[in-house]
């Protein structure tokens, strides 16, 4: 299979077939995470660099482990400890690591479009791990995976995305991904954080997107409630008056969630501000799938690395190996699914 593309930059430019391929592949790879020995040889000999210009816990670790579980060599650059602090440009950084033979660069960057710039500069595959306020496509895919796993489908589900839509790359990737897969997406938050133009994304993906400033309206009858992180420094810019008021008017709590469907699930991309955008008790309740999202993130990123770097054979065969899988098959000489 594989994806017929060099890079994964956005979900806006990914079609339903490609997204479904990623989700299906992740489904078969997720099993590896529950093994005693979490290692398959699929990406042996491939090198993956994580290049993070912003802080990250989940995404960077998730990519690194995804690579390691698939036997890729992973290296990490955190820009605070690299030559970036000496003023090296992104172009020079990219060309230098590529000169060392990197096959794939996973980049997080504060500027929207930086991964597009990087992808034009180098031969290596580029995976966008979050660019400014633009997109975070692997988060979008893991959110879709988590919903599909719980609900069995995406078509026709009402998904309410609550919070700072304006600055959220997660929101944009979720809107494109879920919208194209046929979900009914609602976004809700204060008018200063929900750009009016966002509704025009609906016709662009061939569906409908509803924006509202009333959180209750979005949550009512929802199958999925997705809460976004509120960056607390936005308050200083005048976008809302206080944390306390935000929490009261726009925060997601038990009373609000009573409006959702009985079997709704609650999601959050992390890191959470407990007691601000999400009440602590609901974050830990049994309808919360927040930690499943994290687990699924590894599976989805394994799928993406495999599909970009791993070549053309079936992922199941790659996982299980010709001898039927298991730790021996995975680690033994010649047991690599990366042979053609």
């Amino acid at each position: 299979m594989g994806l017929r593309r060099k890079d994964i930059l956005t979900l806006e430019d990914m079609d339903v077939e490609e997204m479904t391929t990623v989700l299906d592949t992740a489904e078969s790879l997720k099993e590896i995470l529950s093994r005693d020995i979490k290692k398959v040889p699929t990406l042996r000999g491939k090198s993956v660099l994580t290049l993070f210009y912003e802080a990250s816990t989940r995404t960077r670790t998730s990519f690194e482990l995804a690579g390691k579980y698939m036997s890729a060599d992973t290296v990490n650059i955190a820009t605070t400890t690299s030559a970036v602090v000496k003023g090296e440009t992104l172009k020079d950084t990219a060309w230098n690591v590529e000169a060392m033979g990197i096959d794939c660069i996973v980049m997080r960057h504060p500027v929207a479009g930086a991964p597009h710039f990087l992808a034009r500069l180098c031969q290596a595959s580029v995976i966008n791990a979050g660019d400014g306020m633009h997109e975070h496509p692997t988060q979008g895919l893991l959110d879709m995976f988590s919903i599909r796993e719980r609900k069995g489908r995406l078509v026709g589900l009402k998904v309410a995305i609550i919070g700072d839509i304006l600055h959220s790359r997660v929101a944009r990737s979720d809107i494109w991904g879920l919208g194209k897969m046929g979900a009914e997406v609602w976004v809700a938050g204060p008018p200063t954080l929900v750009p009016p133009e966002v509704e025009r994304m609906g016709p662009a993906f061939g569906g409908r997107l509803r924006a509202t400033h009333r959180v209750d309206e979005a949550i009512e009858g929802a199958d999925v409630v997705m809460v976004l992180r509120l960056q607390l420094e936005r308050q200083k810019k005048g976008l809302f008056p206080s944390i306390r008021e935000y929490s009261r008017v726009f925060g997601v709590n038990r009373a609000r969630l009573a409006l959702a469907k009985d079997d709704f699930i609650l999601m959050h991309p992390g890191p959470m501000n407990r007691g601000v955008e999400i009440a602590s008790d609901v974050a830990d309740a049994d309808y919360s799938v927040i930690l499943e999202q994290v687990t699924n993130g590894v599976a989805v990123r394994m799928a993406i690395l495999y599909l970009l770097l791993g070549g053309s054979e079936s992922p199941v065969q790659a996982v299980a190996g010709p001898s039927g899988g298991g730790p021996t098959g995975a680690r033994g000489p010649g047991g690599g699914g990366d042979q053609r």
Partner: peptide
């Protein structure tokens, strides 16, 4: 500031 800034995630 407009639809394309919203889609592209660039400040408008």
């Amino acid at each position: 500031q407009g639809y394309w800034a919203t889609v592209l995630g660039l400040r408008g």
